[in-house]
Design a protein around this nucleic acid. Structure first.
Length: 592
RNA sequence: GGUCUCGUAGCUCAGCUGGAUAGAGCAGCAGCCUUCUAAGCUGCGGGUCGUGGGUUCGAAUCCCGCCGGGAUCACCA
């Protein structure tokens, strides 16, 4: 974009006038605020010292030199250390025709393209997905798209946690109360059926604990917990009847997950099962012990001592020689690094596991794997309800499938009330409502800073007006409608007419500027690893468009060149919105 | 207690690699649909950017202290 040109020219001027090297990337160039005259502003305070001039004179000197170098500069003015530059109409108009098509931003030529393995979702197979999982899935998928848009190669991975005490609990409950119930016979998704038995187990276990006076039902010695632990031992031995049940229940859950993934438009290049990887890491730890990086206690357990790095002593192998969570993560990280030659490994996991990943990275480094520095724990905040954290056991969760249904229904209600899209076939309307409902949900979740906890208030539900996904979808549909009406009336968009010498309105310059910053925006989103950047950019763009063309007419403009410029801007806006929101997984309807 | 993190309008959030008068949306009030989609637009009211210092031409943004919320520190995952 032209700001890079401007930065380069300014850098050259600094070296000519004051013999100082200034990196073009470090020069601050911004859109001029609307209450000052000018199109873009260069902040010249950093040059004041080298110029040995007052800020005003420094800006004046740079401005004069720039005006000589760049013919597109019409005039400039100086306010304190701010150099405000105004370009000629012809210069502005040339920018659009020189800009690369939006489609090309999706795969820029990146010479620093990295191979990134990005793990996300990673659910437990004992209960259905809830709103917290949705945040994980959307962030993970969208982050992968953002990386791709910045030119990286991404491998999306999912490690399904299909083994352990939690699934044994549901197996015990199913054996006791299941009566051969299946998802088909119960008429529910497999993950919901399994979730029912998990809750049943927990409830019954609490009752047993209360009767027996056991304090902690979780790790206490209730008969039910003993059964569950016995089943886990049988599973590890590979007892056929246990394996059969385990396979059956897991396949139900995973089928259910896959339905939800498909509905959300979330996918994976590689799916791992913890049952296949849970033994990994043991040999690595034993090797590390032999090499003297680790310690062994008298009872045989193996530890790493990270107290000198501000952490604690952590166990890596139990006294019976079995692995723990950390051991498995060491094993899978090494395998993943070797399998994919990954430059970077990203784990999308909630912020309650910051400590765990801190230990993982430091342990890997201690074991001699220097690439541990390339591990990023992409930790996101939790979704809170007005009454506090979501807790599966207390039933204070927002179920993912229910929420998706509700969003779709709300979209349908609003659409019907407004009398929109009534002429579409029922199937199309259904698809539209799904797209809008999901647009509202995805935008709601992705527009906030991933690091922060976010609040979801079910009683107020998610908005469809204002700074929302549907607003951006609406803007896109409106533009499509204008373009369609135009072509019906024989007014086609002609890219060549753009060169005509017609002044752009200030708002149109702002819109054009925003459109031209798309590549910088995707780069920023990738560097900050934040889909929220994309969401906020899209909203600003849509808002600018709506605001401007509420009053100004596009198709009824009598001047052919002006009309064509507006059509071009409109078309470009629609393409940009579709591309940007695509990074968030939000579909853009042509009608709504 | 140690470590990490968050605190911006009544509410939900932007802005944070320091820049000009701190922005949106929702909620409230007042307007705008025989004219390209009103899921929209325009206007009004609403702020000691938790607090006290420091760094400098300049701090919501960087550093330190304090106050308040959250997370975490298992032979669980």
């Amino acid at each position: 974009m032209f700001t890079q040109l401007l930065a380069q020219a300014t850098s050259d001027i600094a070296s000519q006038l004051w013999n100082q090297q200034v990196a073009p990337a470090s020069i601050q160039i911004e859109k001029t605020p609307s209450h000052f005259e000018g199109d873009v502003t260069i902040v010249v305070f950093p040059f004041v010292k080298m110029a040995r001039l007052k800020p005003e004179d420094t800006a004046q000197a740079i401005g004069a030199a720039l005006a000589e170098k760049i013919s597109g500069i019409d005039r400039f003015n100086v306010v304190k250390g701010f150099l405000n530059i105004t370009f000629t109409p012809a210069f502005w108009l040339s920018q659009m025709s020189e800009a690369a098509p939006v489609a090309e931003y999706s795969r820029p030529e990146g010479n620093d393209a990295k191979t990134i393995v990005l793990e996300y979702s990673s659910p437990n197979t004992n209960k259905p997905l809830h709103l917290g999982h949705i945040r994980n899935n959307l962030l993970g998928w969208s982050l992968a798209e953002v990386y791709k848009a910045a030119g990286h190669n991404v491998i999306k991975a999912n490690l399904i946690n299909d083994r352990g005490i939690h699934i044994c609990k549901t197996m015990v409950a199913y054996n006791m109360w299941g009566n051969n119930e299946t998802p088909e016979s119960a008429g529910v998704k497999g993950d919901h059926l399994i979730g029912k038995y998990y809750v049943l187990f927990d409830k019954a276990n609490k009752e047993e604990a209360a009767e027996l006076g056991i304090e902690k039902p979780e790790d206490g010695d209730t008969p039910l917990m003993k059964d569950a632990r016995a089943m886990l031992r049988d599973w590890e031995k590979g007892e056929p009847h246990v394996m059969a049940l385990w396979n059956k229940l897991n396949s139900w859950v995973i089928d259910g997950f896959n339905d939800t993934y498909a509905r959300l438009g979330v996918d994976f290049d590689k799916v791992y099962r913890e049952s296949e990887t849970y033994l990994s890491g043991k040999d690595i730890v034993q090797k590390g012990l032999a090499e003297g990086h680790l310690q062994q206690d008298p009872d045989g357990s193996v530890w790493i001592d990270l107290t000198d790095e501000g952490l604690d002593r952590k166990i890596l192998l139990r006294s019976d020689g079995t692995t723990v969570y950390m051991t498995q993560d060491i094993g899978t990280a090494v395998a993943r690094h070797n399998d994919f030659g990954a430059d970077k490994m990203v784990y999308v996991v909630g912020n309650e596991q910051i400590y765990h990943f801190d230990v993982l990275k430091k342990t890997l480094k201690r074991l001699g794997y220097d690439w541990a520095d390339n591990i990023l724990h992409y930790s996101y905040g939790m979704v809170e309800l007005p009454e506090g954290k979501m807790k599966s056991r207390e039933g204070t969760v927002v179920d993912a499938d229910d929420l998706l249904d509700e969003m779709k229904q709300t979209a349908a209600d609003i659409s019907k009330e407004a009398g929109k899209a009534q002429d579409l076939p029922a199937v199309e309307q259904d698809r539209l409502h799904e797209m809008i409902g999901q647009g509202a949900l995805k935008y709601f979740i992705l527009r906030v800073d991933p690091k922060k906890n976010m609040l979801f208030n079910p009683s107020e539900s998610i908005d469809f007006n204002g700074n929302t996904g549907p607003f951006i979808q609406y803007t896109h549909a409106r533009i499509c409608s204008v373009l369609n009406k135009g072509s019906e009336a024989g007014i086609a968009v002609d890219a060549l007419k753009w060169f005509a010498d017609a002044e752009l309105k200030p708002q149109e310059k702002e819109l054009l500027y925003q459109l031209l910053t798309l590549p910088q925006m995707t780069e920023k989103a990738a560097n900050n690893e934040s889909p929220a950047v994309v969401a906020n950019y899209s909203f600003e763009l849509a808002q600018m468009f709506n605001s401007m063309y509420q009053e100004i007419s596009i198709l009824r403009e009598p001047d052919e060149t002006l009309r064509n410029n507006r059509l071009l801007l409109a078309k470009r806006t629609a393409e940009t919105l579709k591309f940007a929101m695509g990074l968030l997984g939000v579909g853009m309807p042509e009608k709504m």
